[in-house]
Design a protein around this nucleic acid. Sequence first.
DNA 1: TGCCAGGCCGGGT
DNA 2: ACCCGGCATGGC
Length: 215
Amino acid sequence: MQILNEIYDRLLKHFGPQHWWPGDGAFEVMIGAILTQNTNWTNVEKAINNLRTAKVLSPEILNLIDTEKLAQLIKPAGYYNIKAKRLKNFIKWLMDTYDGDLKRMFKTNLSTLREGLLSISGIGPETADSILLYAAKKPSFVVDAYTYRIFSRHNLIPDETTYDEIKSFFEDNLPDDVALFNEYHALIVRLGKEYCKKSKPLCEKCPLKGVIVGD
DNA sequence: TGCCAGGCCGGGT
DNA sequence: ACCCGGCATGGC
């Protein structure tokens, strides 16, 4: 679909590459994906720094650390009690299923791995897709609140569109390209943060102005 | 100051 | 099958 390409080109030109999760290891990316649920990324960075300083950023150690201590370390990320449980659930699954071996985990085919992730309590569609795309480098498009808000606000999708429908909208109309999916989602988040906030029903100087017909 | 942030679960209807 | 309250810190 041409409109998706045009939106991407416009956003990339306007914001430049977003460099999401480039240097962090895959394991840290997955931890970050869980910690960032409904939470500002700067808060997540503080939590990850705590984990790094405490030298607990490995599947083996996190599997053994008690949930209470983990909760204290990730406190800046908010929802720390529930997120500590979610991290433990994920780590236990990783140990039980792949013996904590990321290489083995990432060798699993996309749909099987997605089902596995979704079976974990605390990992929903966005977190699963973030892990698949940004850690496992698989072509799974990530949808989030910004994606929905921006595209529905511009009348590109109906209000009642579900997560999986929006995901398919992108995947069915874009080439199966990990780097493209990576950058596209990051650009949508950037656009949402700066121009499509909840409290502002109209995005006055939206960079997409003129791209969408009748908008 | 109140609102918002890169969601998800579980219980109630 | 939806709907909604709860979860919580930090920045503007």
